[in-house]
Structure formats: structure tokens, C-alpha cells
Amino acid sequence: MSGKKPKKLSAALTHVGVYFALFLFLLPFLWMVLASFKTQVQILNTSKIFEITANFNNYISIFKEYSFLQFIWNSFVVGIGATIFGLILGLPAAYAIAKYKQQGLGLLILVARIVPGISFLIPWFIIFSKLHLIDTYTSLILSHMLVTMPFIIWVMIPFFEGLPHELEESARVDGCSIPSAFVRVMLPISGPGIVTSSILAFIFSWNNFMFSLILAGDNTKTLPIAVFNFISYSDINWGGLMAASVTITAPVLLLALFAQRYIIAGLTGGSVKG
């Protein structure tokens, strides 16, 4: 598509454009990392914005004084739990919806993705406290599953639609029940789809703020709440806040870097197909 000599200039311009845009989009992250290594005094001094003296005090203090390790652990438990259970419920459902064209159910799942989360908060809190489940991983995982499961189904329906049904048929001929054909034959070839949907589901759970705000307590407080709480009853400690922000975003950013292929597929797959 791209031509020869006269196109050289335009190719160069394209590169400049793309990389400049990229730079703009990465700037806030750069700024966050930079500030997380600064002391309060350095942050307040706007005349030398790029002066840093690699200073880990902000990080040391958030781990030592504010037990961020515990919050990271909480976020992992909830994220992984919500993803695994989301898969267990979501995969068979997506398969059946895809195979039997149950569009009504598909719509119901879509609605779950659409409804504003804030509508659940009051009822959930009342139900979960009646069950003594406030400040437990169970309530957090259940609530986060309402984010992960519909998403998994949403990504997996088109994926399953694209799989050849002959495979299942031949497994059935071998004497497998449909569930076992599903688990033994269909799931193994769905690896990429499952990886895609799980990674994104995990990220959504990790990032969720609203549900944990109401359902978590001191034992199960997830990172977003902990970071927000950091704006506490003392003056605004920008260095600490940015160190906390780095801590919370680093895992998802790393995940995104390593699994980018799957993430792009997940975000774009459902919409490009068709």
C-alpha cells in the first residue's frame, strides 16, 4: 500500500504523528512515576520539575505504615476468585447461548453489563449483612463476579460461535456426554479466548472501586479503597499518593504489557466480528 519515493515524507510524518501521540498518552504515567520518587518539597517546587533524587521513602512508608501488602493480597484474592468463578459459570453459559442461539439470555447478560452498579449498593449491603458476609472475601467475590461473568460471556459467545461444531459431534459419537465433550474437547481449543476474557475480567475486578467501597472492611479492603483512603486526616501527601498509585497500577500495566495480544483481541474481538 505504501508507495515509494514521494511517500517517504508522509511515512516520516506518520511516524512522528504516532510517536508524538504515544508520548502524550504516556505523559501522565511518566509524571506519576516521577512524582512518586520526589519529596513533598520537590513536588511543590515547580521551577525544577525534572529534578529527582531517587528516593524510595514514599514507597517504604506506604508498605510499612499503611500495610499495602495486605491490600495487594486482598485485591489478588478477590480478582482471582471473581475470575475463576466467573469462568465456571460463564463458559458453559456462553457455549450454550452460542450453540443454541439463546439470544434472550444473551440480552439478559448484556443488561448485566449495562446496569449502573450503583443501583445494587443498598440492597446488596442489606442482604450481605443479613448473611454476615460484610467484610469477607465471599461478598466481594460475589459482587465482582457481576462484573467478570457477564464480560466473560460477552467475549466468549462470538468465540464459541466461531468454533467448528463437528468436533463436539465426533466426541459425542465416542460416547461422551455433552458436558464432557465440552470440557474435554471444546475448552482445550478455546485457550486463547479463555485467556483473553480472564485477563480482562481480572483487570476489571482489580480496578473496581464502587463495590469494594461498600462491601469491604478493614480485613478485605482492596487497593482502590486503600489508595483513596490515603487522602487522610493529614495534609495532602502527593509523593505518597503517587507511590500508592504506582503500586496499584503497576500490576495491571505489567499484565497489559505481557498479554497485550490477548487484551487487544478481547477488547476488539467482539466488535469487529460480524
Binding site: 469477607t136 472475601y137 480485613n219
Partner: peptide, 10 residues
């Protein structure tokens, strides 16, 4: 400790 218990439960 508590979180471990919760984890076991999960």
C-alpha cells in the same frame, strides 16, 4: 491469619 481463613473458605 484472618485472610488465610477467608482464602481457605474460598
Amino acid at each position: 491469619k484472618k485472610s488465610f481463613v477467608g482464602f481457605k473458605k474460598a
